[in-house]
Design a protein around this nucleic acid. Structure first.
Lengths: 362, 362
DNA sequence: CAGCGTGACTGAAGCGCTTCAGAATGTCCA
DNA sequence: TGGACATTCTGAAGCGCTTCAGTCACGCTG
């Protein structure tokens, strides 16, 4: 059997005996033709097996694709092993979905962030960058393509919109909390941030040069509250749970062992909890642990995690609104002054400390 | 400042003084023009701020978009809270990425599975359906569009390719293991499967009508090994961790309380573990728990989870290969007999029981 | 030197759709 | 009764690119 070419608008138009424009209107502007004719068009379309206007051709004609390119720093499994990402993207998706936008995932490659050619070839109206390292090529590609851009948890890029959280304040709250509990020997556990490819111990100045803005900010927040304290810094070797566990053991193996560990994510904190349990270290009796994010698993652990809460859903929602507003302001060819102003806006969701069971007196 | 229209191929061609075809060749077929001219074209393109061929226009001309529509049953956060999905999609993405394909996520809506109109409007060359309920409208849309289809953990759709796992066997292995340990009172914990919208206790025949193939299969596998045993069935109210915990409490609250619980995913099993801990029930002393999937968290829990292992990465990899082969066989207009055969292939990754610390004698 | 293969480039026909300025027909009120 | 308006439908110009059948010039062979 010969697989016949899929029917097109023209085929339907010919079959019904109307012009192509009319068939197009039947799908896109029902008010432009009589209900009777529209029914007839639709019936004939069904009969011919015409599934509606081809999305690609429509995109070319309207110059809108209905897709949002999501630029990730890592592979999908790594990226989504962090509940924070899922929650944020979910909230984002819920905001843009009613307007017909779907997410096109561009996972990161070797260079951190998706390869430039993927970005150049991506069929999308706008890009959303999620916690990319500074200076990745993907952002240049976005710019040369002239794609609108929303960045999440990243430094502001000129012309882009940004949403982040109060990293420095959150970190400061966490450190202050521990200090007030009497702790003086601290561990700081940073996510993998390309400073030391294999992970490991870090000096403060090394860490200050991290490629990720949130790492730098949180570090600054921690250290600012810990004058004249012993501080051991450790960077995870990778983003996997395994490497987090390795790092946790390394931190707890330091001598003298820190009495409190500040973690830059709940994932890392949970790894410290797991390591402590395996080492027979009582939390919070002998060790206090603070996370960051307050993702759902933080409250399920035993003991439940003290952590810095940020409203991830709100972050995603705001990102979604920024996407929509950039898309809207890009449509009128003359980008009005107000639109440009909005485009360069940078917002941050507030943070707060959530004290649970993983922290106690030194 | 007036935002000038983005430059096109023609602009570059005009500026260099060559034909449009030549500029196109400079990007797509470097061997078709002299190196010198190519350099000149590329230089002029850079100067004009031309970022390369427009992806949409290219797609229309080549009728390939470079995107794979991933049809999910639920929202993104729910979907990705299951590590099994992340691992599978990651493996899939790694296989298709070198060929330039990215994933376009179509999250599920109210009806289970993405709305038909989203599927019809999705710019993709092929669809991958992941564990959709039977009979969701999205699959009809895929078919009327004539999109190639790969289904994962779902019943085989005519004309599609399928990859799943040995659900029934895996379930049987789990049940047999517990039975051999002397257990006679069982709980079976099923994921949310639309049988009873609010979740809750189920009869076996109700459960046999679940909308998800894997639920049905696993149930059959469990029950087949448990003749003359007491069995309590419970369906989670939703897919969130919270509803899993609720369900776990309900199961453990049954009287007499089951001495062993068979869970249809590791997520559910971990919830049972958490509930047991809160209730002061010793695992495996007073309660045995078996999961399904052997996702990474299964080995991190305390006690580590006995579970049915399936190679999720392999599943994703095979799905990716099926995608590529369908794409290849769709290209030649005449779908050869062998291609059609491949298209209807249905494969399953093997399962095995991994015995860890969450199961013990009755 | 006729004949021919080859490398380099071009012309033009699409890909399937949207959209906008009309044309055609009918309606309504002064 | 006739002009002003609606309403309904059409023609044609794109959207930006790929691709294939050539054309052209050139050097090589016998």
């Amino acid at each position: 059997m010969t697989r016949r070419r899929r029917p097109t608008l023209d085929d339907v138009a010919l079959a019904v005996g109307v012009s192509r424009a009319t068939v197009s209107n039947a799908y896109n502007r029902p008010d432009q033709l009589s209900a009777r004719l529209r029914d007839e068009v639709l019936r004939m379309a069904a009969e011919l097996g015409y599934a509606g206007p081809d999305p690609t051709a429509r995109s070319l004609a309207t110059s809108r694709t209905g897709a949002i390119a999501v630029l990730l720093d890592t592979s999908l499994s790594t990226a989504f092993s962090d509940p924070a990402l899922s929650l944020t993207l979910d909230a984002l998706a819920r905001v843009v979905d009613p307007r017909g936008h779907a997410l096109l995932l561009l996972p990161g490659g070797a260079g951190g962030g998706p390869p430039a050619e993927r970005v150049l070839a991506a069929q999308a109206d706008i890009a959303v960058a999620y916690s990319l390292a500074d200076g990745v090529p993907a952002l240049d590609s976005v710019r040369t393509r002239g794609l609108p851009l929303v960045v999440i948890d990243q430094p502001l890029v000129p012309g882009a919109a940004r949403i982040g959280c109060q990293d420095r304040l959150g970190a400061a709250l966490a450190a202050r909390h521990l200090r007030e509990l009497g702790h003086r020997r601290f561990g700081i556990f940073a996510a993998h941030s390309h400073v030391r490819p294999g992970g490991g111990a870090l000096t403060a100045s090394e860490a200050a040069g991290a490629a990720f803005r949130d790492t730098r900010e949180r570090l600054g927040g921690y250290l600012g509250e810990l004058p004249s304290c012993e501080v051991v810094l450790h960077e995870a070797a990778g983003l996997s749970a395994e490497s987090a566990l390795d790092g946790a053991f390394a931190l707890l193996g330091a001598s003298p062992r820190p009495s409190a560990v500040l973690c830059m994510s709940d994932q890392l904190a949970l790894a410290v909890l797991a390591a402590a349990r395996q080492l027979g270290i009582d939390v919070p009796g002998e060790l206090s642990v603070v996370g960051f994010d307050d993702s759902p698993p933080a409250s399920w652990s035993s003991p439940p995690l003290t952590t810095v809460r940020q409203d991830l859903a709100a972050k995603g929602r705001i990102a979604g609104e920024l996407v929509l507003s950039l898309l809207d302001s890009a449509a009128p060819s003359a980008a009005s002054a107000s639109a440009s102003a909005a485009a360069s806006a940078s917002a941050e969701v507030p943070v707060s400390l959530v004290v649970r069971g993983s922290t106690g007196p030194a």
